[in-house]
């Protein structure tokens, strides 16, 4: 993005100023409340004027969020938020464009738009509420529901392999991907802030709990008592360590990642892999994003953040280039260009 393209507020803004005041209608205890808190906090931290922020959403519980955020907002139709946000940002790069979506909205009905916004690298910040279930339609399995899960539409367990959103996004060429649990507001806010700062499409996947239809779907990963051993919180340039006293870490064994303990079997601190979020080749990011319990911890934080030209910048650049070289400057020029003849 061209530096200074989006106007900054003259005065520092607080999180509270980004709350719209509309009555929030999510179920009590829903993970979405945490996302709303972190999102408004992250928006305040960007320093952009509230007027210059646009929050676009699709359909579902997640997609009600624009009504609760005191910026410009657009609650659209099922699955299409990525296409609408792409048009909004391409047409008007002076806006900071955000998008809220869920696992059904983004990975099922909107799957096509999701992979193509990533491929194009349009500068949009996507918050993906992943709760493994269709909540607003009352409990049908989604494309991220684990195999075998019993839901209303899979009374005998699902027989579909789920998508891992990170894998899907990286496969589509994502330049920024972060994963956060809904009960770590600091990490979530930091990742959202980094997503806003990233030029290009950024995805923050929130492992969000739906109390009603998929309660504790992420519990094995997110439970406070065990999370230190089950989550690896990535920090760019730092060794990939986890566990209560950070004694466990990741090492490559052939083409596989493995968990090792420092001091055990002669493992030294320098044997632990260093996280390089900016590495252009996504193979390690893909391996990190695939890590799953019980053998490996689940990767949290910014998995990938690489620089690549954005669609919106390249589009503007082409227009500016053509404006400087073309003889066609206005419609009268165009109408009178080429094969024109006079009839008397």
């Amino acid at each position: 993005m061209i530096e200074g393209r989006i106007a900054h507020s003259d005065i520092p803004l607080t999180k509270d100023e980004f709350v719209s005041g509309s009555m929030v209608k999510w179920c009590p205890g829903c993970g979405d409340y945490s996302i709303l808190n972190c999102l408004t906090q992250a928006m305040a931290r960007t320093g952009y004027r509230k007027e210059d922020i646009l929050l676009v959403s699709g359909i579902g519980c997640s997609s009600r969020i624009p009504y609760y955020v005191n910026t410009y907002g657009f609650h659209s139709i099922h699955g299409r938020a990525a296409a609408i946000a792409s048009g909004a940002k391409s047409a008007n790069p002076d806006l900071s464009v955000w998008m809220a979506t869920g696992d059904g909205d983004c990975a099922a009905i909107g799957g096509n738009h999701f992979i193509h916004i990533l491929r194009r690298n349009v500068d949009v910040n996507i918050i993906l509420f992943n709760n493994h279930i269709y909540g607003l339609t009352k409990g049908q399995y989604s494309p991220t529901t684990p195999m075998g899960t019993v839901t209303k539409t899979s009374p005998f367990g699902t027989i579909e392999q789920p998508f891992n959103p990170a894998e899907l996004a990286l496969g589509a060429g994502a330049t920024f991907f972060a994963r956060v649990p809904d009960n770590n507001p600091k990490l979530m806010t930091d990742c959202m802030e980094a997503a806003a700062a990233h030029d290009g499409t950024s995805v923050v996947e929130v492992l969000q709990n739906c109390m009603i239809f998929a309660n504790k779907a992420h519990y094995e990963i997110t439970a406070r008592e065990t999370r230190d051993d089950r989550q690896l919180i990535l920090e760019d340039g730092q060794p990939m360590l986890f566990g209560k006293d950070k004694q466990k870490g990741l090492r490559l064994n052939g083409l596989q990642l493995e968990v090792v303990e420092i001091g055990k079997d002669g493992v030294r601190p320098e044997d632990i892999l260093i996280h390089d979020a900016g590495h252009e080749d996504p193979i390690m990011h893909m391996m990190l994003s695939r890590m799953a319990l019980p053998d490996l911890p689940v990767a949290m934080g910014i998995i990938r953040s690489v620089k690549q030209d954005t669609y919106d910048d390249l589009l503007e650049a082409q227009i500016n280039e053509q404006k400087s070289v073309s003889k066609i400057r206005c419609m009268d020029d165009l109408l009178n260009s080429g094969d024109v003849f006079y009839i008397s």
């Binding site: 299409r80 296409a83 609408i84 792409s86 909004a88 391409s90 008007n92 096509n112 280039e321 053509q322």
Partner: peptide
């Protein structure tokens, strides 16, 4: 016709074609 400041977006499908246009209309 980029020299006239016109932006075209070759979308991934017909739906994205109109939805990107709605996004552009929303933003002026």
């Amino acid at each position: 016709l980029k020299s006239l400041g016109i932006k075209t977006f070759q979308a991934e499908d017909e739906i994205a074609g109109i939805c990107s246009a709605i996004g552009a209309s929303l933003t002026g």
